[in-house]
């Protein structure tokens, strides 16, 4: 089947088998390897991408389902203005160790602060509860997302 998926602002057209998972289309088809795979049962969330702005597990969606839709991956977080506030905050607050879960965590964080400009500790933990991290114990991930929210709020206030 021929599909066109807009990934990070660029249309990718490809002829794919219906069974091709979106995550494989992103990683192999588009060559964007920041989206990872960590399980077989839709449990770990390291494959998270935003489809039309909503975080979903790309290992549990077919590439054909994304035909005509737009997908944001970690590679699409940075803009011409520089790093996204969550990216900066993850580094500043030591929100990552091995970095395997990090792209997913940042995307969920970015989607959260779009909706909730000042999430509480509990709200962040709830929002990232579909995403596992084996290294950080989540403490600094929560801190990073909250500090990104604060940074985003203050820069929105400036403009």
């Amino acid at each position: 089947m021929e599909i066109t998926v807009n990934i990070n602002g660029t249309d990718h057209t490809a002829d794919v088998e219906p069974r091709l998972l979106l995550v494989d289309h992103i990683r192999t088809g588009a060559g964007l390897t920041g989206t990872h795979i960590g399980c077989d049962t839709t449990s770990c969330g390291v494959c998270t991408v935003l489809v039309d702005g909503t975080p979903v597990k790309s290992c549990t969606m077919l590439a054909v389902q994304a035909d005509g839709r737009s997908v944001t991956t970690v590679e699409g977080l940075k803009t011409a203005d520089g790093l996204h506030p969550v990216q900066q905050a993850f580094s500043d607050e030591h929100g990552l160790q091995c970095g395997f879960c990090t792209p997913a965590m940042m995307l969920v964080g970015a989607a959260l602060i779009d909706e909730n400009p000042a999430p509480s500790d509990d709200e962040v933990r709830w929002a990232i509860s579909g995403n596992l991290c084996r290294c950080t114990g989540y403490m600094n991930i929560v801190k990073a997302i909250q500090s990104a929210a604060a940074a985003a709020a203050s820069s929105n206030g400036d403009s």
């Binding site: 920041g34 977080l77 790093l83 580094s91 990552l96 940042m106």
Partner: peptide, 9 residues
């Protein structure tokens, strides 16, 4: 971090 937060690991 620089490479990991940009998906360049």
């Amino acid at each position: 971090d620089a490479r990991l937060i940009e998906g360049q690991g």
